[in-house]
Design a protein around this nucleic acid. Sequence first.
RNA 1: GUGGGUGUAGCUCAGCUGGCAGAGCGCCAGGUUGUGGUCCUGGAUGUCGUGGGUUCAAGUCCCAUCACUCACCCCA
Length: 420
Amino acid sequence: MTFQAPKGTFDWIPPRSERVLAVRDALAAPLRRAGYGYVETPSFEDTELFKRGVGESTDVVSKEMYTFLDKGGRSITLRPEGTAPVVRAVLQHGLHNGQLPVKLWYSGSQYRYERAQKGRYRHFWQVGAEALGAEDPALDAELIVLAWQGYAALGLTGVRLLLNSLGDRQCRPVYRAALQEFLRGLDLDEPTRERIEINPLRVLDDKRSEVQEQLTGAPLVIDHLCGDCKAYHEEVRWLLTAAAVPYADDPRLVRGLDYYTRTTFEFVHDGLGSQSAVGGGGRYDGLSEVIGGPPLPSVGWALGVDRTILAMEAEGLLDDAADARLVDVYGVALGEEAKRRMFLLVTDLRQAGVGADMAYGSRGMKGAMKAADRSGARFALILGERDLAAEAVQVKDLTTAEQTEVPLTEVVTTLKGKLK
RNA sequence: GUGGGUGUAGCUCAGCUGGCAGAGCGCCAGGUUGUGGUCCUGGAUGUCGUGGGUUCAAGUCCCAUCACUCACCCCA
């Protein structure tokens, strides 16, 4: 009997798993430099938080949540997204009672019950950022710039930024009604007709060509923005241009979650199979109130870690051989006494900050050297009876095959010097 | 939830109109009893996804089932 990872999930294993850490670090670094503090929230929350925060009309809530009753009869849901939990944490701890905006970032697992395909899994990882409690286009622009810098730091060149505004509580309802009227006149299937009444903006996102063809004359949000929203949007665009972040206006860009208002954006890439977004976000001025808090206009984004790795793979940015190289030094000991001494030597090296591994088990010289080679280490340390007698170790450069004898007492400093 | 494709060694896959289970890579060992990578030789590993059916005989044909995968819907 063997087990496998649950349907729709997968494992990160070496060497590729190194990229998970690297991507998280690269995406988080710009945030830390911009004053975002780290927040970690539970992987599960009260189901009601998502129902109200994300919106009952969304697919995420209506069919993609992992929901169960705990032993106390409480309805619990594995988080399908990170924003609502962060807002909940901010409200719970009163962070918004201090200086605003509250700037936070997070990194963690998300769960959605969906049919898996390339770039879309039931368990996935995101790095997210939220700036809460301030209505300022500079904040929207700041977040977009920080995400852009994160992608750039990873070497990605194929990420494109799509930008739109969804309006606010003044202009959005007017637009919504106009769009509904237009959509009701189209020839659409039943599920789509239902969507017109529940969440009409999402119809614009339909990928089917027979639907897209009919949408050519659809009213656009951008034409219905009120004066405030228009000015806000123009300022965001101006700041992005000034910061030299290229973007494309996409008047059809909408988002799947109900809480978005005004600024909406998506980072897209062509290497994700049928998916297109590596990251996305926007402004959510009404979310706090929806879950019982005070008005707290905010903006944020979430970037998919596994999708970012897919994008990097598509651009040929992954180097498995380099990722497999974990140590710089590899010990090869011959005989029991030498092995004991090598164990201490390797421990000393690690203590001194030098990555070191050694051959375990009962491999012969040849096998141990082979292991040294496979480890990707630059140097092999060879220690046998002769060397022990001489109180020395053979240091072999595996790239040049050059070998020198170094006194045991000097090995650590010698290697530290060579690896500088 | 719906549709297509694929399940054979650790990995990538071949296996024709049914007739002894295969290759490459990887792994282990030897060639070299203290030296890796290249090279040579040898070796181990399979419930051919699972269950049933047809047949003298099934990896191969039929049915069912499960898994994986890609796509739709939707989304990071």
